[in-house]
Design a protein around this nucleic acid. Sequence first.
DNA 1: AAAGTATTTTAAGTTACCTCA
DNA 2: CGTGAGGTAACTTAAAATACT
Length: 206
Amino acid sequence: MAVLPTSSSNLELTISVPGFASSPITFLTTSSSSGKKLDMNQVAIEEEWMRLEEEEESNVNPRKKLRLTKEQSRLLEESFRKNHTLNPKQKECLAMQLKLRQRQVEVWFQNRRARSKLKQTEMECEYLKRWFGSLTEQNRRLQREVEDLRALKVGPPTVLSPHSSKPLPASTLSMCPQCERITTNATAAVAVDKHANAAVTLSPKV
DNA sequence: AAAGTATTTTAAGTTACCTCA
DNA sequence: CGTGAGGTAACTTAAAATACT
């Protein structure tokens, strides 16, 4: 039996048991987290589990990939929903229930947290992309409006009075500083006031 | 109580195995 | 059968947290 250290930084050793994970788990401990009541089956399970923990010291085939059974995955997920991290006692308990090494449970939780965070990041990325798209579109509209207004400035004033329908003299026109639309002096103050009170919220339609 | 050291835990990044199209 | 992609268990490393002296 070959014994191989799997890490240069510490002397942790791992063991893989062929066919070990393939047998479905048909039992669960009945003990609560506070106290343990063990029946004969439970004792056998614990002995087996302790044997596996001890065998961790020897190693036949390092880094052999384990596939978790559906039941193991289900229980791990269930546990993860309750708590994203495990204290040592919980880890031990769960490892025993799942007939896995504590290290395997620990690694599963590490990876699960990482997957969880990755998913979250991807969602945030999507959200920001949409926001960016919406802002870009808004920016395009505003640029077009600015160009239109600049074009207006070049030619003679063609703004008509709403009362007489005749062109207004340039001296009566001004630009609203907020929305950059042309207004008459009489309405400019109102326009500015309106903008001051408006709550501007930017949120993309997700 | 404060400082230094050792140990443990965690996140992040990587590697390797396995499955499936 | 060979191959590449994707998923994920397992590993490494560094930093933070905690325990111990």
